[in-house]
Simulated scan of single mutants.
Amino acid sequence: MKKYSKHVFFTLLFLLAFYSTFSNVTNLSVTDFDEWLAAKFNSASLDGSALEDKNQELDEKSLNVKKAKQRYVSSSVIEAVQTLEDSIDLTQYSSHEVTATGYTAGIESTGKTPEHPNYGITFSGVNVKRDLYSTIAADLDLFPIGTVLFIPGYGYGVVADIGGAIKGNKLDLYFPTVEEVYDQWGKKTIDVYVIEKGSGELTEEDLEKLNQNEALQVFRSQMKQ
């Protein structure tokens, strides 16, 4: 008897929890359901306008539930914005293991001060840039000028420069300041992916066109984090 009572108790708890969940999700109560059944089975006793009003009330509640679900889905999508790296299928590109360091246009990396006539100008002739497509330095025998690489953790890099110590499987990634070099990069050995091999030339117009790619503008804010 005691075991049976316990079973009944837990069954009642389950039914109560089920009703509570059903009521919260659908916004319908037992009273609403009873009234709906009564309206269906006793439609002959209701005039047309009364029946229509009751059905409209229930339809509105159902619509509110649908709208709430849509808002939830929309909110979830907004919160789950992809990263640039997640948006690319890197398996379709050839990869190379490289040792990548960071550099700036300043005297600590290039020996040039802002007063130097060639300050901030790369070997290709374009100005250094940190953007959706940033200027990087590479060994031109491996990666010709204009080669587009995807560098995990950094983004797209376009080969625009060279360096005395940049030989073989080495890259130098441009950052605007020394602090950013140390805080965001330092030195890493990673696999980079060849998106497009360069022709040996790169212009400011080429670089600007890459950075104005509309499909990538959603990721621009990530560059500022």
Score class of each variant (00 low, 15 high):
43 S>I: 11
150 F>L: 07
72 Y>P: 00
197 K>M: 03
169 N>A: 15
202 L>G: 03
206 D>W: 08
209 K>N: 07
224 K>Q: 04
9 F>H: 14
41 F>N: 10
14 F>K: 15
43 S>P: 02
118 N>K: 12
121 I>Y: 03
202 L>S: 05
181 V>H: 01
111 G>D: 08
178 V>S: 14
70 Q>T: 06
76 S>W: 06
197 K>C: 02
216 L>F: 02
129 K>I: 06
138 A>T: 08
219 F>H: 10
154 Y>D: 03
81 V>P: 00
60 E>L: 14
61 K>M: 02
47 D>T: 01
82 Q>M: 05
179 E>K: 13
214 E>T: 14
162 I>A: 04
105 A>V: 01
84 L>G: 07
115 E>W: 05
53 D>H: 12
139 D>Q: 04
37 L>S: 07
153 G>R: 00
55 N>S: 06
112 K>S: 00
208 E>H: 12
65 V>K: 00
200 G>N: 07
155 G>I: 04
18 F>K: 10
8 V>Q: 03
194 V>R: 08
119 Y>N: 01
116 H>A: 13
75 S>K: 14
21 T>H: 06
162 I>P: 03
199 S>I: 09
96 H>Q: 03
149 L>Y: 04
127 N>H: 09
14 F>C: 14
85 E>I: 13
26 T>R: 10
83 T>C: 03
29 S>A: 00
109 S>M: 07
63 L>T: 00
106 G>L: 05
144 P>G: 12
95 S>P: 03
212 Q>G: 07
164 G>K: 08
188 K>F: 01
104 T>D: 05
92 Q>W: 01
121 I>S: 00
50 A>T: 12
217 Q>A: 13
141 D>N: 15
72 Y>D: 07
89 D>Q: 08
164 G>P: 00
98 V>S: 11
13 L>I: 15
66 K>P: 00
136 I>D: 00
169 N>K: 13
107 I>D: 03
165 A>S: 13
32 D>I: 02
137 A>G: 02
126 V>L: 12
83 T>W: 06
6 K>R: 08
133 Y>S: 09
91 T>K: 13
67 K>N: 08
70 Q>C: 05
33 F>T: 09
73 V>G: 02
86 D>M: 11
38 A>P: 03
115 E>R: 02
91 T>C: 10
20 S>F: 08
64 N>Q: 05
106 G>N: 09
159 V>N: 11
46 L>F: 11
167 K>N: 13
172 D>R: 15
200 G>I: 07
174 Y>R: 02
92 Q>G: 06
53 D>E: 11
30 V>H: 05
191 D>A: 15
17 A>K: 04
225 Q>R: 14
46 L>D: 01
